[in-house]
C-alpha cells in the first residue's frame, strides 16, 4: 500500500524507502482499478488524472537525493559491523598530510593491529603506492572529476579490499574541505586534518566539515616556528563550531604528538580484537 495516498495499486512494488515516493502522485485522483488496456502497467500509465495548468500537470515527487547515498552508507555500516571492522573517514584540504599520517600509523601500529586503507583521489595511484610501501593492503579509488567519495564507491572498494575480521579501514577521502562532509560513507568516525600552514581560521571558514567531525588533528606542528599560526585561536575556533571534538597537535613527519593519536585509535579498536588480546 502506498503510504502517501493509501492506494494498493502498487502493492507488488517493494516497500518505499523513507523520504522517497514509490510512484508519482497526482491530486485529486480516483482509483478505478479496471484494467488499463493497452497502456499496460508501466509507471507513466498510472498518471491518469491531475490538474491542468495550460496543458501540463504537476506531479509531486518528494525525492530525497541524498537518501540513496545514506541507504548505501547504512548497508556499508552493517557490512563492517558484521566483520567487526571499523572504518575511519579522514578528510582535509589537499596537502594537510593525510597520507603521511597514514604511512606513519601503519609503520608504528601495523604489528599490533590489522590495518587496511582505501585511497580516494581524482587521478593517479601515487598515494596507494606510498601506502603499499608502508606495508598495508590498499585499494585506490579514482573519482575522475568527482570531488568526494560516496557510499557506493566505498562499498565497492570495501569488497575489493576484503578486510579481515577485527581490522581497521582508513579511508583517505579526496582532498577537499567542503564536499566530503555532505556524504555519509558508513564510517565509524570522521577525522578532519588541518595543518599549521593553512591558517587558524579554517574551523570557522569550513564550519560544516569541522562540525561533522569526531576528531581534529592539527598537523605539521614542526613548522610552527616558521609560520604565523596562532594555535590558541585555532583551538577556540574549533571548539566554537564543535565543542565535542578533541584537537590533537601532531607532526606526522617527526612523530610528535602521535601517541595521543594512537591512544584515540586504541580506544575505538574493534571489540573482537580486544577479546582476542585477552586470551
Amino acid at each position: 500500500m502506498c503510504a502517501t495516498c493509501g492506494c494498493s495499486e502498487h502493492s507488488s512494488d517493494p516497500p518505499a524507502e523513507p523520504g522517497t515516493d514509490p510512484h508519482p502522485h497526482m491530486h485529486p485522483h480516483t482509483h478505478s482499478h479496471e484494467p488499463h488496456g493497452e497502456s499496460g502497467h508501466d509507471r507513466s500509465a498510472h498518471i491518469h488524472e491531475g490538474w491542468d495548468e495550460g496543458g501540463s500537470r504537476r506531479v509531486r515527487l518528494e525525492l530525497d537525493l541524498l537518501a540513496k547515498n545514506n541507504r548505501i552508507a547504512e548497508r556499508n555500516r552493517g557490512w563492517l559491523e558484521g566483520r567487526q571492522t571499523l572504518a575511519l573517514n579522514l578528510m582535509s584540504a589537499p596537502g594537510s598530510g593525510k597520507t603521511t599520517l597514514l604511512e606513519r600509523t601503519i609503520r608504528d601500529l601495523g604489528g599490533e593491529f590489522r590495518l587496511g586503507v582505501i585511497e580516494g583521489d581524482q587521478e593517479s595511484s601515487q598515494d596507494a603506492e606510498r601506502i603499499r610501501k608502508a606495508g598495508a593492503p590498499v585499494v585506490q579509488i579514482n573519482t575522475g572529476t568527482g570531488c568526494h567519495l560516496d557510499a557506493e564507491m566505498l562499498g565497492r572498494a570495501l569488497r575489493t579490499l576484503d578486510p579481515p575480521p577485527a581490522s581497521w579501514v582508513f579511508i583517505e577521502n579526496v582532498g577537499n574541505l567542503v564536499c566530503p562532509a555532505l556524504f555519509d560513507l558508513g564510517e565509524d568516525a570522521r577525522v578532519v586534518i588541518a595543518s599549521v600552514t593553512e591558517g587558524e581560521d579554517k574551523p570557522i571558514k569550513y564550519a560544516h566539515m569541522f562540525r561533522a567531525s569526531d576528531l581534529v588533528v592539527l598537523n605539521k606542528m614542526d613548522l610552527l616556528p616558521y609560520v604565523q599560526f596562532d594555535v590558541d585561536r585555532f583551538l577556540v575556533h574549533s571548539r566554537s563550531v564543535n565543542p565535542r571534538a578533541r584537537v590533537l597537535q601532531v607532526s606526522a613527519t617527526r612523530g610528535d604528538g602521535l601517541s595521543a593519536w594512537y591512544e584515540w585509535l586504541r580506544e575505538r579498536r574493534p571489540s573482537q580484537a580486544r577479546s582476542l588480546e585477552m586470551r
Partner: peptide, 11 residues
C-alpha cells in the same frame, strides 16, 4: 540540509 526534488510539471 535538504536536497530533494519536490515536484515536476509534465505534458
Amino acid at each position: 540540509h535538504e536536497l530533494k526534488i519536490r515536484e515536476v510539471e509534465v505534458l
